[in-house]
C-alpha cells in the first residue's frame, strides 16, 4: 500500500490501513516519546494515545507534509502535553501527601536507561537524559529528534515547522546548555 492509498484508506476509517500504520510507525512513535518521557510505562501509554489521536484526527491531515512528519508532530505534541500535565501535578504536589496514589515516592525520577544505548554508553547516557529534562521544550524537541530518533536537521525542521537555520541554532543552544548543566551539576570539565 503506497502512502497516498494508505492516507485515503485511513480517512475512510479502514481498520486494515490503521493496522498497517500502527505496525510500520510504532517504533518511530515509541522511540520519540520515550526520548521525552524517559519512562517505559509512560511511553507505552502515550504511544497508545498518539495512535488514538491519529485515528481520530486523520481527516484533518491535509497532506502538506509526509505522513511520517505528521505522525512525529502528533507524537511530540502528545509527549510534551503529558510532561506539562505531570509538571502541573508536581507543582501542586504540596496539596497531596508525599506518597503518590499508589503509595510510591513521587519526588525524584530514577535514572533512565534507554534500551537502544550500547552497554559502554549506559552510564553516560543516563546522565545526559537527566540533563535533557532541564532543557526548554523547543531545544529538547530538536535534540531528541536529532540525537535519539536520528532525524536530519532538515527533517527536524519539517517536524517543528521551522527553518533549517532555526534548528541549527536550537541544537547549538541545546548543546551549550547541556554543557553548562553538566558542569554545574556533575562538576564535569
Amino acid at each position: 500500500m503506497n502512502e497516498i492509498e494508505l492516507i485515503s484508506r485511513l480517512k475512510s476509517g479502514d481498520a486494515i490501513a490503521f493496522r498497517e500504520l500502527v505496525e510500520t510507525r510504532q517504533s518511530l512513535v515509541f522511540n520519540t516519546v520515550i526520548g521525552f518521557l524517559q519512562n517505559t510505562e509512560d511511553a507505552e501509554d502515550v504511544t497508545q494515545d498518539v495512535f488514538v489521536k491519529i485515528f481520530e484526527s486523520i481527516t484533518q491531515f491535509k497532506g502538506e507534509s509526509a505522513l511520517s512528519t505528521w505522525v512525529y508532530r502528533v507524537a511530540v505534541t502528545t509527549a510534551l502535553e503529558f510532561l506539562r500535565r505531570k509538571k502541573r501535578k508536581k507543582r501542586f504536589g504540596f496539596l497531596s501527601p508525599i506518597l503518590g496514589e499508589n503509595n510510591e515516592l513521587t519526588l525524584e525520577l530514577p535514572d533512565f536507561h534507554h534500551p537502544g544505548v550500547t552497554l559502554d554508553n549506559r552510564e553516560k547516557s543516563a546522565i545526559l537524559f537527566k540533563a535533557i529534562r532541564q532543557l526548554p521544550e523547543n531545544q529538547q524537541t530538536a535534540f531528541v529528534l536529532n540525537k535519539v530518533e536520528g532525524l536530519s536537521y532538515q527533517e527536524v525542521a519539517e517536524v517543528m515547522k521551522t527553518s533549517l537555520s532555526a534548528v541549527e541554532s536550537l541544537l547549538h543552544r541545546a548543546k551549550t546548555n547541556l554543557k553548562d548543566l553538566l558542569k554545574n551539576f556533575y562538576n564535569l570539565e
Binding site: Q26, S27, L28, N31, A43, P115, V117, K147, G150
Partner: peptide, 9 residues
Amino acid sequence: LENIQRAEP
C-alpha cells in the same frame, strides 16, 4: 547517544 538503536514497544 551516537549509534543509539530505536527502542521498541
